[in-house]
Design a protein around this nucleic acid. Structure first.
Lengths: 207, 207
DNA sequence: TCTATTTCCTACTGGTGAGTATCTTGCCTA
DNA sequence: TAGGCAAGATACTCACCAGTAGGAAATAGA
């Protein structure tokens, strides 16, 4: 493949996608680092060496930028739920696998943005969509818990409460975890899932 | 006590404290409802039928208002930890009592403000103090877990991870719980603590 | 009665940042 | 080769809001 200064249609399209991606990535990083309100689109643009209208060109207004960030994160979570559903194992096993991926996602750029974004940061239609997506994820988690209770691998609990407890615990790393820290996201996720499924009280009958 | 239009020194002091309190309460309610950045001090003042300089008179600048809100919440948590320390029972019992009060606090005005306030919302010295107070609470929780592990009432776990998991799960109601909902804060707190201490996997040996 | 202090208001300043109007350049297509 | 569209830049507007200046009214104390 000789590289020519004349780019084909596909190349130019790919270019556009790549630039869009770069803008989104820069935005989410700054939102996570400094907070949504403390980040101006001028800042984001400057960090890429471009000007503000460029962001409007690729992504739209600030609301839309944030919505796309959180949507990305929530889609990763939904994919995790879908993948889990297709796997073998009893309910608890599958829930555990889902929770691990959930926690890992929460330590990545877009996942962190989901936890750090309160509903009020978005306005109007965006807020409604944000909420709907979160409800969907919650629904998936509840379903997994229910399946586990049905097959006896999970103790009978209030599904709604359990789901909130798990989500809360696994969202939290998105607030405290630093990606450059000593522990890998996978390690942390694994440990948290163990603690949550085993509980704190010692098990009397463990082989 | 005849009520006279001439107020004593004590009465006037009490008046001042009461007004200060009212301003703080109005502020924290609006911060929780609409978010810190979306709430102007003009809004807070208007909700009390006064003007912005009144807020500056009683509380100082916006940073200081927020700092006092979160400090109140964190002090409630610290009091809970102190009270717990004085109580009888094994480590797990005492931790459970603390966690209940922790969760309940997170569903009240000032507690909710603590969860909803990211570090970046505060600036400079305020931010440092906010972080220090949070670290202190976390230290208290870790200590309780350690004591439980020592006396055998809590399974040996990574204390840091356990503390993060518990805090995350119990902070979360501050984000989703509506005070006017059907379930009382006490009920929710109790259920969440049960789930967290028992774990999800069924216990084989329970009498 | 005179002064100081508390309490609170009206009215301003100044900065910041979202969003837009308009222009330029260059490539693509007809 | 003319017209159109993509990809940006510059340079604005406009609204909002934190924080302040300065003053008025009431009360306290001397």
């Amino acid at each position: 493949m000789a590289s020519s200064p004349f780019r084909s249609r596909e190349e130019r399209d790919a270019d556009r996608v790549q630039k869009r991606e770069a803008v989104l990535r820069a935005a989410v990083r700054m939102f996570n680092a400094q907070g949504f309100h403390a980040t101006s689109l001028d800042d984001v643009a400057a960090s890429l060496g471009v000007s503000k209208p460029t962001i409007y060109h690729y992504l739209g207004n600030k609301d839309q930028v944030l919505l796309e960030c959180v949507t990305r994160g929530l889609e990763q979570l939904r994919e995790a739920a879908d993948a889990t559903r297709a796997q073998p194992g009893n309910g608890l096993d599958r829930l555990r696998r889902f929770l691990r991926r959930y926690a890992e996602t929460m330590m990545e750029d877009f996942g962190r943005c989901v936890v750090r974004t309160p509903d009020e940061a978005l306005s109007g239609e965006s807020r409604a969509r944000f909420r709907a997506l979160k409800r969907e994820i919650d629904g998936g988690m509840r379903k997994l818990i229910e399946e586990g209770i049905e097959d006896g691998s999970i103790a009978p609990v209030d599904v709604r409460m359990a789901s909130f407890a798990l989500a809360g615990a696994l969202n939290w790393p998105g607030r405290w975890h630093r990606p450059d820290g000593p522990e890998s996201a996978g390690d942390i996720a694994g440990q948290m899932v163990d603690i949550l499924t085993a509980g704190l009280a010692p098990r009397l009958s463990e082989h």
